[in-house]
Amino acid sequence: MKIVLGNLSIFLNLLLKFEEESAGLLIGSTKDDIIYPIIAMPVENVLKSRVEFLANPYDMVVGHMVAENYKLSVVSLYHTHPYGMPIPSNKDINGMKMWPIPWIIISRKGIRAWILKEDDKPIELELS
Protein backbone atom coordinates (compact mmCIF):
# COMPACT_ATOMS: atom_id res chain seq x y z
CA MET A 1 0.00 0.00 0.00
CA LYS A 2 1.20 3.48 -0.91
CA ILE A 3 -0.10 6.97 -0.09
CA VAL A 4 0.39 9.74 -2.65
CA LEU A 5 0.47 12.96 -0.62
CA GLY A 6 1.64 15.31 -3.35
CA ASN A 7 1.19 18.93 -2.25
CA LEU A 8 -0.65 17.90 0.93
CA SER A 9 2.79 17.24 2.42
CA ILE A 10 3.35 21.03 2.42
CA PHE A 11 0.21 21.52 4.52
CA LEU A 12 1.15 18.67 6.88
CA ASN A 13 4.61 20.14 7.49
CA LEU A 14 3.08 23.54 8.31
CA LEU A 15 1.30 21.92 11.27
CA LEU A 16 4.66 21.69 13.05
CA LYS A 17 4.52 25.41 13.82
CA PHE A 18 1.98 24.63 16.56
CA GLU A 19 3.13 23.65 20.06
CA GLU A 20 0.21 21.24 20.58
CA GLU A 21 -0.33 18.05 18.63
CA SER A 22 -2.48 18.70 15.57
CA ALA A 23 -4.75 16.07 14.06
CA GLY A 24 -7.12 15.53 11.19
CA LEU A 25 -8.46 13.31 8.47
CA LEU A 26 -7.38 12.90 4.88
CA ILE A 27 -10.24 12.40 2.44
CA GLY A 28 -9.82 10.90 -1.00
CA SER A 29 -9.96 7.63 -2.87
CA THR A 30 -8.10 4.35 -3.23
CA LYS A 31 -7.29 2.55 -6.47
CA ASP A 32 -5.09 -0.51 -6.97
CA ASP A 33 -3.79 -0.34 -3.37
CA ILE A 34 -2.74 3.29 -3.81
CA ILE A 35 -4.35 5.98 -1.63
CA TYR A 36 -4.96 9.38 -3.21
CA PRO A 37 -5.95 11.95 -0.55
CA ILE A 38 -7.22 15.25 -1.89
CA ILE A 39 -8.73 16.98 1.17
CA ALA A 40 -7.14 17.57 4.58
CA MET A 41 -9.83 18.02 7.23
CA PRO A 42 -8.36 19.29 10.53
CA VAL A 43 -9.98 18.16 13.78
CA GLU A 44 -9.72 19.80 17.18
CA ASN A 45 -7.37 18.23 19.70
CA VAL A 46 -9.59 18.50 22.77
CA LEU A 47 -6.64 17.67 25.06
CA LYS A 48 -4.67 20.74 23.93
CA SER A 49 -1.54 18.69 24.66
CA ARG A 50 2.00 18.81 23.29
CA VAL A 51 2.36 15.03 23.59
CA GLU A 52 -1.03 13.47 22.82
CA PHE A 53 -4.29 14.13 21.04
CA LEU A 54 -7.93 13.26 21.35
CA ALA A 55 -9.95 14.18 18.30
CA ASN A 56 -13.17 16.08 18.84
CA PRO A 57 -15.89 13.50 18.02
CA TYR A 58 -18.04 16.15 16.31
CA ASP A 59 -15.18 17.02 13.95
CA MET A 60 -14.69 13.33 13.14
CA VAL A 61 -18.36 12.99 12.20
CA VAL A 62 -18.18 16.13 10.07
CA GLY A 63 -15.11 14.74 8.29
CA HIS A 64 -17.00 11.56 7.40
CA MET A 65 -19.97 13.63 6.22
CA VAL A 66 -17.71 15.75 3.99
CA ALA A 67 -16.24 12.58 2.48
CA GLU A 68 -19.69 11.13 1.87
CA ASN A 69 -20.95 14.40 0.38
CA TYR A 70 -18.15 14.33 -2.20
CA LYS A 71 -18.54 10.57 -2.80
CA LEU A 72 -15.07 10.00 -1.34
CA SER A 73 -13.73 8.14 1.69
CA VAL A 74 -11.76 8.93 4.82
CA VAL A 75 -8.47 7.37 3.71
CA SER A 76 -6.14 8.31 6.58
CA LEU A 77 -5.85 9.93 9.97
CA TYR A 78 -2.93 12.32 10.52
CA HIS A 79 -1.39 13.88 13.57
CA THR A 80 1.81 15.56 14.62
CA HIS A 81 4.50 14.63 17.09
CA PRO A 82 5.95 18.16 17.43
CA TYR A 83 8.57 17.04 19.94
CA GLY A 84 8.99 13.39 19.00
CA MET A 85 9.69 10.92 16.25
CA PRO A 86 7.26 10.08 13.42
CA ILE A 87 6.59 6.61 14.81
CA PRO A 88 3.46 5.35 16.58
CA SER A 89 3.40 5.62 20.36
CA ASN A 90 1.64 2.96 22.44
CA LYS A 91 -1.35 5.29 22.65
CA ASP A 92 -1.28 5.65 18.84
CA ILE A 93 -1.27 1.87 18.45
CA ASN A 94 -4.34 1.63 20.67
CA GLY A 95 -5.99 4.31 18.55
CA MET A 96 -5.06 2.46 15.38
CA LYS A 97 -7.02 -0.53 16.67
CA MET A 98 -10.14 1.66 16.89
CA TRP A 99 -9.47 3.50 13.61
CA PRO A 100 -7.99 0.79 11.33
CA ILE A 101 -6.95 3.11 8.54
CA PRO A 102 -3.44 4.37 7.73
CA TRP A 103 -2.07 6.84 10.28
CA ILE A 104 0.30 9.54 9.11
CA ILE A 105 2.61 11.00 11.74
CA ILE A 106 4.36 14.30 11.10
CA SER A 107 7.43 15.38 13.08
CA ARG A 108 10.50 17.51 12.59
CA LYS A 109 12.24 14.25 11.66
CA GLY A 110 9.91 13.65 8.71
CA ILE A 111 6.52 12.32 7.68
CA ARG A 112 5.81 8.60 7.93
CA ALA A 113 2.69 6.49 7.47
CA TRP A 114 1.68 3.38 9.39
CA ILE A 115 -1.01 0.73 9.50
CA LEU A 116 -1.52 -2.13 11.94
CA LYS A 117 -0.96 -5.70 10.85
CA GLU A 118 -3.20 -8.44 12.20
CA ASP A 119 -0.78 -9.04 15.10
CA ASP A 120 -1.20 -5.37 16.17
CA LYS A 121 2.29 -4.47 15.00
CA PRO A 122 2.57 -1.27 12.97
CA ILE A 123 4.08 -1.55 9.52
CA GLU A 124 5.31 1.43 7.56
CA LEU A 125 3.65 2.43 4.31
CA GLU A 126 5.29 4.10 1.36
CA LEU A 127 4.68 7.83 0.93
CA SER A 128 5.18 9.94 -2.15
Rank of each mutant, 00 (worst) to 15 (best):
I104N: 03
L15V: 09
E20F: 12
F53A: 09
I106D: 07
L54I: 07
E20R: 10
G63R: 03
Y58I: 10
H79R: 00
Y70A: 05
K117W: 00
P82R: 04
K117Q: 08
M98L: 12
I38C: 13
L25W: 04
L26S: 01
D120A: 02
P86L: 04
L14V: 08
G63E: 02
L15W: 13
M98W: 03
I115P: 00
S128M: 13
I93R: 03
D92L: 00
L12D: 12
V62F: 15
Y70M: 05
I111C: 11
S49D: 12
L127E: 13
S107W: 08
K91I: 07
R112M: 12
V51S: 11
I104G: 01
L16M: 11
G28D: 03
W103G: 03
I27K: 01
I123S: 09
V61E: 15
I39F: 14
L26H: 02
D119Y: 03
M98Y: 04
P102G: 07
E44L: 13
P86H: 06
P82M: 05
S128N: 14
G84K: 02
I34V: 08
L15E: 15
L25M: 12
V75A: 00
G24V: 07
Y70I: 05
V62C: 14
S76E: 04
A67I: 07
K48S: 13
N7T: 11
P100K: 00
L77Q: 08
Y83R: 10
S49F: 06
L116N: 06
L116F: 01
K17V: 09
S128T: 14
G84L: 00
E20T: 11
F53K: 11
T80P: 03
L54Y: 08
K2Q: 12
K17C: 04
D32H: 08
N13Y: 14
